[in-house]
Write a protein that binds this DNA or RNA. Structure first.
Length: 105
RNA sequence: UGAGUUUGUUAUACGGUCGCGGGGUCGAGAGACCAUGAGGAAAGUCCGAGCAGCAUAGGACAGGGUGCCUGAUAACGUCAGGCGAGGGUGACCUUAGGGAAAGUGCAACAGAAAUAAACCGCCGUAAGAGGCUUGGCGUUCGCCUUGAUUGCCCGUUUGGGUAGCCCGCUUACGGUAAGGAUGGAAAGGCGAGGUAAGAGCUCACCGAUAUCUUGGCAACAAGAUAUGCCAUGUAAACCCCACUCGCUGCAAGAUUGGGUAUCCGUCAAUAGGGCUGUCCGUCCGACGGAAUACCGUGAAUAUCGCUUGAGCUUGUCGGCGACGGCAAGCCUAGAUAAAUGACCGUACACGACAGAACUCGGCUUACAGACAAACUCAAAUC
RNA sequence: UGGGGUGUCGCCAAGUGGUUAAGGCACCGGAUUUUGAUUCCGGCAUUCGUAGGUUCAAAUCCUGCCACCCCAG
């Protein structure tokens, strides 16, 4: 099961305005039902300089790739990481799996 | 061995599994396979250029920038070599370094005075007021005391006149720039002569300026001669001089921007009427419309610009060098919520600063370390 | 990505190159009061974001950095 990248600005706007929210210690998830599974990451300047931001995105993407296997339906999703001291794939993956289970995606 | 100076290189490496960006091949498609994929600063956005749009005959004014010389370059505020100045024992380092005699402004406080010879002072001349007392020692001379303690004449109790004297005092005129607590700066410095007192007034040395000669493309340097020396600082104050500059930026700019029906406009054709020209009405066809309705939908979008370029590597030649010429070879990210990661193993020095966004040339700033070369100083030994 | 602006005491801020860098609020100490508030008096910037330079002298002029803010489809 592959996921597509969420690229359009309008899609992001729609999710931020109308999407359902679920959050954990490390990450907030916005989602909506759709035809294919699409995923985007929203990350701002508060997370650090560009190297730091790229690092977070890579880790989140890797965690989502692993956690996606638990999902049943197809959704468009935006992941918003929270500002922390340290980031790790394991923490992201655990929280994502937890949210998927709880929201029954 | 220790302390340093300058320049350059490098920026974890290798293997396995899963995954990402755009590209190629195969495939109807799902997908499979192949090679490839961040930096020395990609950063800051401080300069310069290409490229694009707009403006523009040419010139002048205004405004901005640069500012020792010569060269390099597409260009630069960059770089190279040199000159001057400053710093360091030295290797070496730093340097916005044109013009103050075109003009204007500013220079607090302090100081006699701040760009200008006024004041104090010093010296000379003239005038004026005043003082030279009481005295002591002593041999008449003389000595002490005083800023100066005298002589002659008249008178003789006090005194008056005249001359002299006071490193004295006051005023006026003149000479002077040695001295005057300051200050960043006081009309070259220092010494000697000289003078009424002084003064480059004169002289030696140092400094400055001008001219000449020699060397150098030049900035400039060296030497000689002359001038007693026209005169503070500030132009990163206005300004003057020389050179130079259109404005805006890839969010530039270019292309595309659906379908059906209706309506409107234009063109051509046909038929009819108003006799020509031409005008009016009807039907069909083509083109156009940022007009309306419905469907569709992404328009802050899609495609191009977008990576072959003042390109990179190697060799060779020219040049002190920046750099340039020639030859051969190479193609090396192109995304757009934006691609390099995760896990495992091995090695060690245990991995810094940090992520392309139109492209180049510089500058500046950040950076764990590791390595190489040249050179300097100090100490010791031979 | 491009363009523009601001940094002065804890906060809001003034400041022609020249005195010890104005003020206001807050804070601290004292006076007044039985105690508070008010009022009065006094204190509070070893340096103007930072590093250099020009100048006799820099918060002010020049250059490089740092931080923050705003605007542009």
């Amino acid at each position: 099961m592959k996921y597509l990248r969420l690229k359009k600005q309008a899609d992001f706007q729609r999710l931020f305005q109308k999407g359902k929210r679920a959050s954990s210690a490390t990450v907030t998830v916005l989602y909506n039902k759709s035809q294919n599974t699409t995923m985007g990451i929203s990350i701002g300047k508060k997370h650090g300089k560009s190297v730091q931001r790229n690092r977070i995105k890579r880790l989140l993407r890797e965690a989502f790739r692993a956690a996606q296997k638990d999902m049943q339906g197809a959704y468009s999703i935006v992941l918003v990481p929270k500002v922390r001291e340290e980031y790790s794939v394991k923490a992201f993956e655990r929280d994502l799996r937890c949210i998927i289970k709880k929201e029954k995606l």
